[in-house]
Amino acid sequence: MGTWRQLLDGLTVSVELTVTTLAVGIPLGLLLAVAVGSKSRPIRWFCIAFAEIGRGLPWLVLLQIFYFGLPEFHITLGAMLAATVGTGWGAGAFMSEIIRAGLDAVPEGQREAAAASGLAYRDILRYVVIPQGIRIALPPLIGFAIMVFQGTSLAFTIAVPELLSHAYGIGATTFRYLNVLIMAGILYAVIIVPCALMVGRYERQLRNFV
C-alpha cells in the first residue's frame, strides 16, 4: 500500500503538470494560430519562428534549457515552473497547427456572410471562426492532451516529483524496477484509456452531427 500511495502522489503531480501545461499551451496555440495569418509580416514571421522552434526542439531539451540553462543569465525557475514553461511552449507550438487546421475548416461562406453583415475582422474571428474552429479541433486537441500527459514523464529529469520519478525512487530503494514500473504503467493507463475512449466517442458524435 505504501508503494501505491507514493505512486498516487506522483500521479497527482503528473496530472497537475498536465493541467498547467495545457493552461499555457492552449491559449498560446490559439494565439499563434491566429497570428500566423496576420497581415503584419514581422508578427507573422516571429510567430512562425516561435512555433517552429517549439516543434523542432525535443521537450527534454526545452526542460533542460529552462531549468539548467537560464541560471546562466541569473534567472532561476523552480522545477515545476520550468517544466510548465518548457512543456507549455512545446505543446502550444504543436497545438497551434491543430487549431489552425480547425480554423481553416470553417466554411468560407460563413466568413463572407459575417463580413457582409458588417462585422469587423476581429469580431468575425471572435464570434464565427474561433468557436467553430475550436469545436472542429477539439478531438485532436484532446488526443494531444493525452500525449502531453505521457510527456510529463520527462519532467523527472529536472527533479519534478511526478509519477515516473516516484517509480524510479522506489525502484532504487527496493531494486524491483520491473514491478514498480508496471504499477506506474497501470496508473498511466487508468487516465489514458478512458480519455482515448472519450475522444473516439466524441469524434463519432461529431461526424454524425456533420
Rank of each mutant, 00 (worst) to 15 (best):
P58F: 02
V160G: 07
L63T: 01
F73I: 11
G92P: 10
G200E: 06
A120T: 15
I192D: 01
Y177I: 05
T157L: 13
F73K: 08
M95D: 06
S117Y: 13
V128F: 10
F94W: 11
A35T: 12
L31Q: 00
G86T: 05
G90Y: 09
L164Q: 09
T87E: 13
N208K: 13
A79V: 06
E16A: 14
G56L: 08
T12W: 14
Q132P: 10
G109N: 12
I146F: 07
R207Q: 13
R176P: 00
S165G: 09
G69H: 04
F68W: 05
A51C: 10
T12A: 14
A79G: 06
A91Y: 05
P27I: 00
A23C: 04
S96L: 07
A49Y: 04
V190Y: 00
A33M: 04
S40W: 13
A113S: 15
R176I: 00
G102T: 05
L125F: 15
P131A: 13
Y177A: 04
R176W: 00
G54M: 08
Q205Y: 10
L22A: 01
P161A: 12
G88M: 10
P42W: 06
R126A: 15
A116L: 14
Q110F: 09
V160H: 04
A116E: 09
V193T: 02
M1P: 13
A145C: 07
L17T: 03
L30F: 01
G118H: 14
G90N: 14
F73W: 13
R201F: 05
Y127T: 14
V13D: 02
D123N: 15
F68H: 03
A49D: 03
T173I: 07
I134N: 09
L187I: 04
P194W: 01
T20Y: 03
L187M: 09
P42K: 11
L22I: 01
F94E: 07
L181V: 03
L60N: 01
V210I: 03
A184F: 02
R41E: 09
R135A: 13
G143A: 06
V85H: 06
I98G: 03
G185N: 05
P42F: 05
T21W: 01
G88N: 10
H166Q: 15
S96A: 15
I130R: 12
I170V: 12
L11K: 04
L138E: 04
L77C: 09
Y67V: 02
D9Y: 12
S165D: 12
P131C: 13
V15E: 02
